[in-house]
Simulated assay, not measured.
Amino acid sequence: MSDAPGAIPTVTAAEARSAIDTGDGVLVDVREQNEWDKGHAPEASLLPMSQLSERVTELSADTRLLVVCHSGQRSARVTSALVGAGYDAVSVAGGMIAWHADGGEIVSENGETPTVD
């Protein structure tokens, strides 16, 4: 986990899965609906970055938020905003690409073979 002063806190995909497995965090996917439908982690909740300001109150202030997107760029921006608002949030480095490459399960909502590409 990255914890340099001023740095956006990050975890690896493996660290994120471990936190989920032990109940030490929840996975929040900030991609858009069409990306989610193609493939997402089964443990994740969808909260598109485009809806964050309207829906931020849906997030728990008492739970570590593991923020994931496609490659880590959007999740870093969302994590920065959430940390600034007082949430315990970390970005999953490499996003769903890293999640899948590291053996993380993905499922689809569109009936097709799940993908994160």
Rank of each mutant, 00 (worst) to 15 (best):
S2V: 14
P5I: 00
P5Q: 08
G6K: 11
I8G: 05
T10K: 09
T12G: 00
T12F: 01
T12D: 06
A13F: 01
R17T: 04
S18Q: 15
S18H: 14
A19P: 01
A19K: 09
I20L: 10
D21L: 10
G23M: 11
D29I: 02
V30I: 03
N34W: 10
W36K: 00
W36A: 06
D37Q: 14
D37I: 07
G39H: 01
A41M: 06
P42R: 07
L46R: 01
L47K: 02
L47G: 02
P48W: 04
M49F: 12
L52N: 08
L52Q: 09
L52W: 07
S53P: 08
E54W: 07
R55N: 12
R55K: 15
V56T: 05
L59V: 00
L59F: 05
S60H: 14
S60G: 15
A61C: 09
D62H: 09
D62W: 04
R64V: 02
L65P: 03
V67I: 15
S71F: 03
Q73V: 14
R74T: 02
R74Y: 04
A76H: 01
A76G: 14
R77M: 14
R77C: 05
R77F: 04
R77A: 11
V78D: 04
V78E: 02
S80E: 14
G84Q: 09
A85R: 10
G86S: 11
G86H: 07
G86E: 11
Y87F: 12
D88K: 06
D88F: 02
D88E: 15
A89F: 03
A89K: 01
S91Q: 07
S91P: 03
S91A: 15
V92Q: 04
A93H: 00
G94R: 01
G95R: 02
A98D: 09
W99E: 06
W99Y: 05
E105N: 13
V107S: 13
N110W: 12
N110F: 12
E112V: 09
T115V: 13
V116N: 01
D117Q: 12
